[in-house]
Design a binder for these strands. Structure first.
Length: 480
RNA sequence: GACCCCUUCGUCUAGUGGCCUAGGACAACGGCCUCUCACGCCGUAAACACGGGUUCGAGUCCCGUAGGGGUCGCCA
């Protein structure tokens, strides 16, 4: 509570509009954790009427790829989490980053360090052996630059305070204090003159006017270092909010098997962006007993005080459930195109005008049975299947000699049905069951197999009505 | 190892000292509906990590223990 008040006060005093940013490094796809971080940044900015920006952290030229940039931007676009302005590419600001570092050196807030990688490694090894955190010991901090070895390009390190403590009133984690002795003189500029992440982030956050840094709590330790840099630059430290990481079903780090997939993989698996966002929102954040929270509602309700501090596990079953819900809520016309696109890639279908029309008409009935767009395509495919239909094992088992006999009779009875409607077909099929002294299921199930090639489908009268007289009768005769 | 963080049903969570014989959701199980499978509806089982305090009273505050996570790069 104290931390929250503190930061709100800070915000009021400076009378700043909220500006957040999502800053992924383009070394891979946009994974679930990143998507949630983006969501929280977006929601927080919208809730407070502020701005939400994007920044691509590509200072590591060797590991950054254009494919990754595209994957991330595409993923964000799919989730409707594109930034309010075109993304900032950190790489473009390198000159500026270097200039700031140089100025820090002239002002005595940073210095040149000539340590070799081997020297640093030895330092770390010794620290560990002595049971200390592996930190740079500041051996070049006050050393005479005249002692610089010849031919060695120096790095620039920040001169951080040796004593006292650094306090961060994190909007999620609360007040966190670290002794300054635990913060070493970290590198601002590499030997080749390029900025490190730690430095570029702070300079860019200043330049972009970021007021709230919302990111994964794997950055919590960085925040103390970055706070020192902000101070060295005489700039206000933004408010921090470190959100807990997402774990896999087994409680360990997200692995390839569950969440560590790119969001585009979820799109392919047939999840709706709205459902994924709703799921991600509820992972680590809650609003009373509410579960179904569409975007507009989320913007109204979201705030950082609702974010929990414990890591949460990724649960596919809940995502499935939520996706099923959103599937049912989405207007049929909107998902018809998505389903059709998926059907077009399937073999064994005849997607002519009549078939497409049947699929469209059948969609509402299939929806209740689907969790994903893949399920939907699976469930609706029979409406466009080429004759004779392929049967699954259970459907084939349903077509006993007796059942085929019943189908024969049914085909004859159906000739007399004048109005090809659900009601009339219902009456006709029930009539046959009664006359043959069997339960409705004894007729309905083989009929289902004949019409859909499956043992499970939407209501069989609905199926028959949508298929139409000609197609339905043809499919029945195919199995007689 | 050092530093930092975390710990309510299997999972996501509600809970901010009395409203908690701990609520909701997903999953599980049982039932209703029913031409199948679903959807929907009804119901059952299921948790405050452990130990000490503080307090008239603790899931809620404090300390410790255990377990989990994160960080310790001229990566981000």
């Amino acid at each position: 509570m104290e931390a929250i008040l503190y930061n709100l006060t800070w915000n009021k005093i400076t009378n700043m509009t909220v500006v957040t940013r999502f800053a992924p490094s383009p070394t891979g796809f946009l994974h679930i954790g990143g998507a949630r971080t983006a969501l929280f940044n977006y929601l927080f900015a919208r809730h407070h009427g502020g701005k939400y920006l994007l920044r691509i952290e590509d200072t590591d030229r060797a590991r950054s790829t254009q494919e990754a940039v595209d994957a991330i931007l595409d993923g964000l676009a799919w989730l409707d989490l594109s930034g309010d302005e075109p993304p900032v590419f950190q790489h473009a600001g390198m000159e500026r980053h270097a200039a700031v570092a140089r100025e820090l050196v002239t002002r005595g807030r940073a210095y040149l360090c000539y340590c070799s990688p081997e020297e640093l490694e030895a330092m770390r090894a010794e620290a560990r052996a002595q049971g200390r955190t592996a930190l740079y010991d500041g051996r070049w901090r006050d050393r005479d630059p005249g002692e610089a070895p010849a031919g060695v390009a120096p790095v620039v390190r920040l001169k951080t305070p040796l004593e006292g403590e650094t306090v961060i009133d994190d909007l999620v984690q609360g007040r966190v204090t670290v002794q300054n002795s635990q913060i070493d003189d970290f590198i601002l500029l590499r030997a080749d003159g390029t900025p490190t992440y730690m430095h570029a982030v702070v300079v860019d956050d200043c330049d972009m006017g970021i007021t709230h840094v919302i990111r994964g709590d794997d950055h919590l330790n960085n925040a103390f270092r970055q706070a020192q840099l902000f101070k060295a630059m005489d700039r206000p430290v933004p408010a921090f909010a470190h959100i807990p990481l997402i774990h896999g079903q087994d409680g360990a780090k997200l692995s390839k098997r569950h969440g560590a997939l790119g969001v585009e993989a979820y799109q392919e698996m047939g999840y709706l962006a709205e459902a994924l966002c709703n799921y991600l929102l509820r992972l680590g954040w809650g609003h009373g007993d509410d579960e179904i929270i569409p975007r507009a509602q989320a913007i109204e309700w979201f705030d950082l005080d609702g974010v929990g501090r414990a890591p949460s596990r990724f649960d596919m079953a809940k995502l499935d459930n939520l996706n099923g819900h959103y599937l049912r809520e989405t207007p049929d016309a909107d998902i018809a195109d998505l389903v059709m696109a998926r059907l077009e890639t399937r073999p064994g279908l005849v997607l002519d005008g009549a078939a497409r029309e049947r699929v469209r008409k059948g969609l509402p009935g299939v929806k209740a049975r689907a969790k994903t767009l893949v399920d939907l395509a699976d469930g609706a495919a029979f409406y466009a299947a080429a004759r004779p239909l392929a049967m699954n094992d259970k459907a084939a088992a349903l077509l006993t000699p007796e059942a085929r006999g019943l189908m024969q009779s049914l085909a004859e009875n159906l000739q007399t049905v004048t109005e090809w409607t659900e009601e009339a077909l219902d009456a006709a099929v029930r009539g046959l069951a009664e006359k043959s002294q069997v339960k409705l299921g004894a007729v309905a199930q083989p009929l289902r197999a004949a019409l859909t090639g499956s043992n499970a489908s939407p209501g069989i009268f609905e199926v028959m009505a949508i298929l139409g007289r000609e197609e339905a009768l043809a499919r029945i005769k195919d199995i007689c």
